[in-house]
Design a protein around this nucleic acid. Structure first.
Ligand code: NAD
Ligand code: NAD
Lengths: 219, 219
DNA sequence: GATTATTAAAGATCTTTTTCTTTATTAAAT
DNA sequence: ATTTAATAAAGAAAAAGATCTTTAATAATC
């Protein structure tokens, strides 16, 4: 009956995820401002460029611990460092990618990820045409080699860009091999143990929003 | 002073976007169930597979207009048709893609988009190496040809997969040429007239969530 | 035929996120 | 020095979304 007791559990109330998702955009903007030689930036300015609310930006930036000065704004350099630290972009994150097809190859060859500290160090596939080759300097191994390499190197992140049917299997293997976070591009919901964090990038979800809008325009 | 009058504007309170984003997943699941010969499905079953709340699924599905039967569930066939109609997946949507690089090529060659009715009919680039060639059967034209072709064909959707620096220009051109919706993969916020709908797919946002989690694990 | 278990539907509540409001700070202008 | 305007910060309110609760329907079981 006294189920109210349950609410004693203190949830570690972190940073709102929408805030984290906005931060890379701030970081991008700040970096290009810095390149132009700017030293300070105000929240209203950022808000205007990003199409956001004023106070939203102020609150997001507050999570980095950096405070701005009235009538001046924030130090761009301070903010960049704080955002990079907050997002973990100033550390090295090595990742394995499984499924070196069209999408996988694009991810491997994308230079922009360097900005985030994330580096794809090896790819895995089961297609004999691909195994043994390199893509953009990254070697493609047979999937069998994953366990061996994952234990020797110290890999915390796995990227799944295989067809949907293989995704759950790959996720199970990754979880078993000590991967801490999975970035999943296959259009399925994968199940993993609690200590593994999964981030889905379901392109279909985005496309659905567009097609729904085109098909049923809001009045 | 009487600014309360503003609140008389009736907002056309549509379907929640998170609901639209979940729908393609339901559709995927239902299609694979149908392939296995299943005829009915219950909301709790879907919820379990997708890691969602029971009532969430019921409410989402209610937006399609299809009602389920107690003790039986929903007709899979009815639901599939209703979801496809709702999402606009049962119509033809022709799209132009600008920026036929790594990511653009992956998108062009992705077979899965057929399921949604969306088809990339032409690609555009400024790289002479690419112009005049074909990628997966899709011709690559010089960007200059966009206006001409967009007016002759009847294209409602544009995909931006150019570097960030070019994105705003491309968006302006698309908006000028009557494109109704833009799917933007460049990591910048683009500005367009009100009647153009923009859907951003910022891979950085997803990566940031992962790296932030890896760097600062919750307690 | 009555009972039970499963399910959808509708409504209420809670949580999260965004927006609005007020206050305080401070550089620049007077 | 004083005033002004731009700004950050903190708090309140509103909006959106997710979850929980109750009710009603109905197929399967007894
Ligand atoms: N290409 C896109 O633009 C795009 C868009 C949306 C979603 N996706 C999703 O991304 C995933 C990959 O798409 P793609 O277009 O690159 O497909 P693809 O067929 O080009 O690549 C898939 C790769 O995975 C490999 N593979 C298959 N089974 C495997 C296994 N068990 N272990 C290791 N490797 C395996 C294949 O050999 C192939 O190289 C799919 O789930 C797809 O739905 C892709
Ligand atoms: N590849 C990925 O996995 C990935 C991941 C995240 C984000 N992105 C973003 O997607 C976009 C494309 O990335 P990519 O890796 O395919 O880059 P890319 O360099 O391979 O491709 C870009 C293409 O755009 C063309 N282009 C440049 N300026 C143009 C213009 N003004 N008009 C028409 N075409 C033009 C180039 O010739 C090139 O073919 C970038 O904005 C990138 O930040 C890509």
């Amino acid at each position: 009956m006294d189920s109210a007791v349950v609410s004693n559990i203190k949830k570690p109330v972190g940073v709102p995820e929408p805030t984290v998702r906005r931060m890379p955009k701030y970081l991008n903007l700040l970096k290009s401002m810095q390149k132009e030689g700017d030293l300070f930036v105000s929240a209203p300015y950022i808000a205007r460029l990003q199409g956001l609310d004023n106070t939203q930006v102020v609150k997001d930036l507050a999570y980095t611990g950096i405070t701005g000065k009235p009538r001046v704004g924030y130090s761009i350099e301070e903010l960049i460092l704080a955002l990079e630290d907050f997002l973990g972009f100033n550390r090295k994150h090595e990742a394995f990618l499984v499924g070196a097809g069209f999408l996988g190859s694009a991810l491997i060859q994308y230079q922009g990820f360097k900005e985030s500290g994330m580096r794809i160090v090896a790819a895995f596939d089961i297609d004999k045409q691909k195994v043994g080759k390199e893509i953009g300097g990254v070697p493609v191994f047979h999937l069998e080699k994953f366990r061996d390499l994952a234990s020797r190197l110290h890999i915390s992140m796995g990227i799944i860009s295989t067809p949907a049917g293989a995704a759950q299997n790959i996720a199970d293997l990754m979880a078993g091999w000590g991967i801490k976070a999975i970035w999943n591009f296959a259009p399925v919901t994968i199940k993993v143990p609690d200590h593994v964090f999964v981030q889905d990038t379901h392109l279909y979800a985005n496309l659905a929003v567009i097609l729904n809008k085109l098909t049923h325009p809001a009045k």
